[in-house]
Structure formats: structure tokens, C-alpha cells
Simulated assay, not measured.
Amino acid sequence: MATTTIPSLDHSGSFQAYRADPQRDPRGAIVVIQEIFGVNEGIRRKCDHFAALGYMAFAPDLFWRLEPAIELDPDVPAQFQQALDWMGKFDQDKGIEDIEATIRAARAASGGKVGVTGYCLGGRLAYMTAARTDSDATVGYYAVGIDSLLGEKHAIANPLMLHIAGDDHFVSKEIQATMHQGLDDHPKVTLHDYPGEDHGFATEMGKRRSDAAAELADSRTEAFFAAHIG
């Protein structure tokens, strides 16, 4: 497994990121933000897929300040509960700092633009990344709690795409409506709805995956990055 070490911006230490390299000169880089389950096999597969498309891909271990190298399986109930417990302890602001450090490392390594994509908790962090960093283009899947972050939308300067699961048991219909009310008129933001789909529908593996919706969302993401990253 290829990893790279990235120093934290606050000089408190360093963390590991899974890294996947393309077979040719990179067309840019993609930072993949984990779910609450850590940098597990599904997240590594996301990176490998982006590398196959010609990007350098990095998945930072965002839980390193709690415990390095957490890897959990969402299909195992006890591990799902562990993941929720870790999320409750996670400092999201420090997470954004670590994503920014990863963006800088990815930009230096690839010599090109850097896109960011995140899933679940990572979808929320992707929105925050779009508002707080210089990511060139950002995608969030089934982001949680965006209604509490709409006050930051004025800071989104580069393109952002959000994939919304229509029957997301973590994101109510009311919150989805609030997201649309707050973001539909934003010139840099595109929202896509997936009626009938639940949280986690675009995971690479496991019980949560919904093939047709995942393939549609991922095709939109790939076209988005091709347009804005290279």
C-alpha cells in the first residue's frame, strides 16, 4: 500500500495519506475525503479509480489526531457504532486544516490543479473545503448538516457539486429543501438529487451501494473534474 507523509499545518505532527499514482504524467490531483469509517478499502478503491483516470489521488487519514489508521466496515453494526463515536470526537476544523495540507502536497506533487471529493462526513468536509481552502473544484456526496453551514456559502469561489440522496436517513427532506433554497442560486454550486436513494449509495462496496445511482453520480463527478481539473 503506497502512502505519503504530510506535515500538519499547526506543526503538531504529521499524518499518513494513501496515495495512488497514474501510469502517465498526471492531469492533476484528487484528494479523497474519508467517511466516518477511516481510510478503508472502499476509500482506497476510490483513489485507485481516480489514478486509473490519470490523476494522482490522496486520501488523508483525518482521524490521526484521535487514533492513526482507523479502518472500519460500515456493514458490521458494532464497527458502525464505533465510527459514530469517532465522529463525535473528531475536530472538523482541524480536519479542514489537514485537508488543506493535503491539497498543498497534492498540488506540489502533481504540478497541476487539485480537486477534492468527499463522502458522508467527507461530504460535509468537502463543502467546508470549498468555502475555506483554494481547492480548484470540489464534490460532496450525501453531505450531512449543510443547513448549519450555509452562512459560509459566500466564500465558495470555485465550482462545487453536491450529490443528495433523496431518502437519506441522516439528511431529512426539510434539510434537503433548505440546501436547495440556500444554494440553488449560487453561481458556483450545482446540486443533483437522487430520489429514493439512501445515505452511502455511492460506496465502492458493501450493502449500502446502489449501482445505477452510484454510476450516474460518479459519471457526473468525473465529467466535473475533467472540466475543472484537467
Rank of each mutant, 00 (worst) to 15 (best):
A17Q: 01
S148G: 13
A227L: 12
T178G: 09
T102K: 01
G122V: 11
I175V: 11
D167S: 15
E67W: 09
E204K: 05
E97Q: 13
D147G: 05
D10I: 10
T129R: 11
P187R: 02
A202Y: 02
F170W: 14
Q16H: 13
G196N: 10
L149I: 03
A106I: 03
I164P: 11
E100Y: 01
G112F: 06
F224M: 08
T5C: 07
G182I: 10
G151W: 09
A2Y: 07
A51P: 03
L216S: 15
A83Q: 04
I6G: 02
W64P: 01
A226S: 12
E204R: 07
V31I: 13
S12H: 12
G118F: 05
A105T: 12
M87P: 01
V39Q: 00
D98N: 14
H163Y: 11
A126Y: 07
D211M: 05
P26H: 06
G42S: 12
A130F: 07
S110F: 01
A165H: 06
P22D: 12
P187Q: 06
F50C: 00
F201E: 08
L66M: 07
K173L: 11
E97F: 09
E152K: 07
T178P: 00
A213L: 05
R104T: 15
K89H: 12
F201Y: 15
G28K: 05
D184G: 01
A17F: 04
V39H: 00
